[in-house]
Design a protein around this nucleic acid. Structure first.
Length: 290
DNA sequence: AGCCAGGCCCTCC
DNA sequence: GGAGGGCCTGGC
């Protein structure tokens, strides 16, 4: 067992269950205290929970000592969250969203897994995306040598390229199987390194990502925001579409395209548009559930 | 039965 | 350059 201390608003459960990442499971409560989560990240099984201003966690097979800085990075615990809040609270709607979802953070995920996950998100729903991702790992990923639980690392580009479209279709990916297989071949061939997109501009990275079949503006912006250090990314899906129309646009904007919505939002919310996106997204969904 | 789900691609205008 | 239809699959 290891511990991570942190400062500022942070809500582990909200962050892990916000639909950014698809391999975290809330474990059934069998003791008093906050819930545990089990996830697979960086080829490790990680158990983690938040107790107040501190995280309790354990990893396998790597040592907690070696994984600690990586996990800290993954959770963006060193991000200047107060600067983000003060940059966004000029907007009344966002100020409400910030209060409603205090501590919801954006993760810094592994780019390949993130890309494949969001290719699978097209015209899909979260439970099925989660199943698709887990099934790919079970079928083609490398088993993790850990004491308990049988979970596999997310498959590498080579592993998914070797699997091929037909076997991915058997897992139930549907028309997305073709896109995943093609992306896997392209990355496996070493044409470029997805991590290198962390080092280039937002626009250059976006232009590169949408060259993948099955990756349009929305999916690319998710990958940029959740794995490639592009906080200005702003994915416009059906929920953001509704949120902007409800809260910012008038009926005369009926015909505005989602691409225009993105550039409008980026102009308004600036370098932290991605966080604005998360609070609008979850705020709008919450309203529909109530 | 028919529609929708955190879209994308293709065709046609 | 953008509107419209089709798409795997599963749930309601």
């Amino acid at each position: 067992m290891a511990f991570i201390e942190f400062n500022g608003p942070f809500d582990l459960a909200a962050t892990l269950e916000s639909g950014q990442a698809f391999r975290w499971r809330r474990e059934t409560a069998d003791e008093i205290g906050p819930p545990w989560f089990e996830g697979v990240v960086f080829s490790n099984i990680v158990h983690i929970r938040q107790v107040g201003e501190r995280l309790e966690w354990a990893a396998s097979p790597d040592s907690e000592q070696s994984l600690a800085p990586i996990l800290r990075d993954y959770l963006r615990l060193d991000e200047d969250f107060s600067a983000i809040i003060s940059a966004l609270e000029f907007d009344d709607t966002l100020r409400a969203g910030l209060a409603e979802h205090t501590g919801l953070r954006i993760l810094r995920q592994e780019p390949w897994e993130c890309l494949v996950s969001f290719i699978c998100s097209a015209n899909n729903n979260i439970p099925r995306i989660t199943k698709n991702v887990e099934d790919m790992a079970s079928a083609f990923g490398t088993p993790i040598q850990a004491g308990s639980g049988e979970r596999n690392a997310f498959p590498s580009p080579v592993q998914l390229a070797d699997a091929g479209e037909a076997k991915l279709r058997e897992l139930g990916l549907g028309f997305r199987a073709k896109y995943v297989a093609a992306a896997a071949r392209r990355v496996a061939e070493g044409e470029f390194d997805l991590y290198s997109l962390r080092e280039v501009s937002y626009q250059d990275a976006l232009d590169t990502l949408i060259e993948f079949a099955g990756v349009g503006d929305k999916v690319a912006n998710c990958v940029l925001l959740f794995s490639m250090d592009k906080p200005e990314a702003f994915p416009v899906d059906v929920w953001i579409d509704r949120a902007l129309r409800d809260w910012y646009f008038s009926e005369s904007d009926e015909k505005i395209s989602r691409n225009k919505m993105r550039t409008w939002a980026q102009a308004r919310f600036g370098e932290h548009a991605g966080y604005a996106n998360q609070y609008l997204f979850h705020g709008r969904r919450l309203r529909d559930r109530n």
